[in-house]
C-alpha cells in the first residue's frame, strides 16, 4: 500500500509532504512511549501516536522514520509541523483512535514493524 492508501483508509488529513504520498508503506508501529520506539524500532517505518510534543519529531528524526500518524484528531503546533516539514516527514492526522487506526491499517495490509529483542531474551 502507499501512504495515500493509508490516508484514504483513515480519512486522514495530510499536514506535511503530500507530494510523497505515492511512496510505498509496508510496516508501522504504534506507541506513546518514545523510549520504546527508540529501543525497538529498527527500520524506516510509520509511527502512530497520540503524543504531539517536539520529542516525537526528534525521535522520528533520529530513526529516519517516514511518516507520523496522529490519532484522535490531534494536530501538533505549527512550530512542530515546521520541523517535520524540514525533516521531510509525512504527517497526517486522523479522527480515529490509535486502536482503530492500527486495526484499519492492518486490515488494509500494513504489518507491524519487526521487533528486535534484546540479547538473551525470548518473547
Amino acid at each position: 500500500m502507499t501512504f495515500r492508501d493509508m490516508a484514504t483508509v483513515l480519512h486522514a488529513k495530510v499536514l506535511c509532504h503530500e507530494e510523497k504520498l505515492d511512496n510505498p508503506a509496508r510496516t508501522a508501529c504504534c506507541s506513546d512511549l518514545m523510549s520504546d520506539v527508540l529501543a525497538f524500532v529498527n527500520e524506516k517505518t510509520v509511527l502512530i501516536t497520540g503524543l504531539t510534543n517536539p520529542h516525537v519529531m526528534r525521535t522520528a528524526d533520529m530513526l529516519d522514520l517516514k511518516c507520523l500518524v496522529f490519532a484522535r484528531g490531534k494536530i501538533p503546533t505549527d512550530d512542530i509541523l515546521e520541523t517535520a516539514d524540514e525533516q521531510g516527514l509525512i504527517v497526517m492526522t486522523t479522527k480515529e483512535t490509535a486502536f482503530t487506526t492500527c486495526g484499519l491499517l492492518y486490515e488494509a495490509g500494513l504489518r507491524g514493524v519487526p521487533i528486535e529483542w534484546p540479547e538473551g531474551e525470548d518473547a
Partner: peptide
C-alpha cells in the same frame, strides 16, 4: 514527554 521507560542505558 514519552520517556523514562528504563530503556535508555540498555
Amino acid at each position: 514527554l514519552g520517556f523514562g521507560a528504563g530503556m535508555g542505558l540498555p
